[in-house]
Simulated scan of single mutants.
Amino acid sequence: MTHSQTKSTHPEPGPWGRLQAASIERLHIRLESLLVLLILCVAMTSLSPYFLSVSNMMNILLATSTIGVLAIAATYVLSSGGLDLSLGSVMGLSGVVGAAFAVNLGMPTPVAVVATLAAGTLAGFVNGMIITRAFVPAFIVTLGMLGIARGMALVISDGRVIYGLPKAMVYIGQGRPLGIPMPVIIFLAAAFLMHLILAYTKFGRHTLAIGDSENAARTAGINVRRHRLVLYMLSGGLAGLAGLLYSTRINSGDPTAGISYELTAITAAIIGGTNLFGGRGSILGTMIGALIMGVLQNGLNLLAVQSYYQQMAIGSVLILAVFIDQWQLRKESRV
């Protein structure tokens, strides 16, 4: 059979086929994740009569907004082949810094908000510089930052919760324009923007290319070190945003906020289709993963399950998600 005959037997997809393929690749939403979310909602509804109440749905969305922002940060770092274990601690530090600026120093709300985001971005910058310049593994660097950021939050707050944020700042976490909680609006806006960047821009393509093969990306002319630095700064900035949403929602800067949140965020990202070892990521999938984690935690709270059992459940879900992801990759490689 000649080459031309082969081409006629397997024709090239038309413009619509290519568009469909590109859309599926960009969205990369696991149908399994949607099914799990549906099953989980049905199960929680049957176990608790309060699950489907309007107030409980709002609680789930509010909790998901914080975890969701952290999960977006985890998606970017993981899809590039990196790892950020400091997300929860940087979130706590950022919230304390913002509260200290607003309450202890009496700074205006815009200054306190900028300080909150800047604290997270600075922590990400330190992570990125050590990883890219000193060539220390990301696991070690971000694990170290986990302790450093938590310690700094305790030092700044003197180990106490900083109460009494300005009303304008509290509105960020407690306002409800058109009846929709402000943190949910901010989360959806951030997710939409981050999805566009990852799916449709050169920055997003370079992020996935680095995660797929760092050497090939470097050969293709991508400045891998600079790109990784920006990714960790972005991760820290998003952790700062999560800290802002959390602190303004509870009207205080809590130095213990965000403990183990990095585990939940990473789990949500992997459930949503992000590859733990890089090369694949989906913000829309991560949103579904964050909803799964939010529903799971909320349901366990309604069922009065102790917090340590909840941590066991989250850890088990993480292991299961990675197992399923790797099983699917091996299955695809054999096809």
Rank of each mutant, 00 (worst) to 15 (best):
106 G>T: 10
303 L>P: 12
228 R>T: 12
183 P>H: 05
50 Y>H: 15
321 A>Q: 04
118 A>W: 04
311 Q>C: 01
328 Q>P: 00
126 V>P: 05
283 I>S: 05
41 C>A: 15
207 T>H: 02
32 E>G: 14
35 L>M: 14
270 I>R: 09
242 A>R: 11
310 Q>Y: 02
4 S>Y: 05
99 A>R: 12
169 M>W: 06
283 I>K: 02
45 T>E: 05
101 F>A: 07
48 S>L: 07
70 L>D: 02
304 A>E: 15
6 T>Q: 14
177 P>L: 08
132 T>H: 09
304 A>D: 15
266 I>T: 02
238 L>C: 03
31 L>T: 07
297 Q>N: 13
279 G>V: 07
234 L>E: 11
138 A>F: 00
210 I>A: 01
300 L>A: 14
153 A>D: 06
163 Y>G: 04
273 G>R: 05
117 L>E: 13
255 P>K: 13
213 S>F: 01
264 T>A: 08
21 A>L: 12
324 I>C: 03
61 L>V: 14
92 G>P: 03
15 P>H: 09
51 F>N: 11
315 G>K: 11
187 F>S: 04
165 L>D: 00
42 V>C: 15
166 P>Q: 05
321 A>P: 02
264 T>V: 14
288 I>G: 06
37 L>F: 07
127 N>S: 15
245 L>A: 07
38 L>C: 15
134 A>E: 00
185 I>M: 10
81 G>I: 11
303 L>R: 11
231 L>D: 03
270 I>K: 10
291 L>D: 00
200 Y>A: 13
71 A>D: 00
206 H>G: 02
135 F>C: 00
23 S>G: 03
278 G>L: 06
99 A>E: 09
236 G>L: 03
56 N>A: 15
224 V>K: 03
170 V>S: 13
154 L>S: 08
119 A>L: 08
51 F>T: 11
102 A>E: 12
95 G>L: 09
94 S>I: 11
287 M>Q: 01
185 I>P: 07
286 T>L: 01
226 R>W: 10
95 G>E: 07
245 L>P: 10
84 D>I: 11
151 G>P: 07
323 F>D: 06
180 I>P: 05
27 L>Q: 00
53 S>T: 14
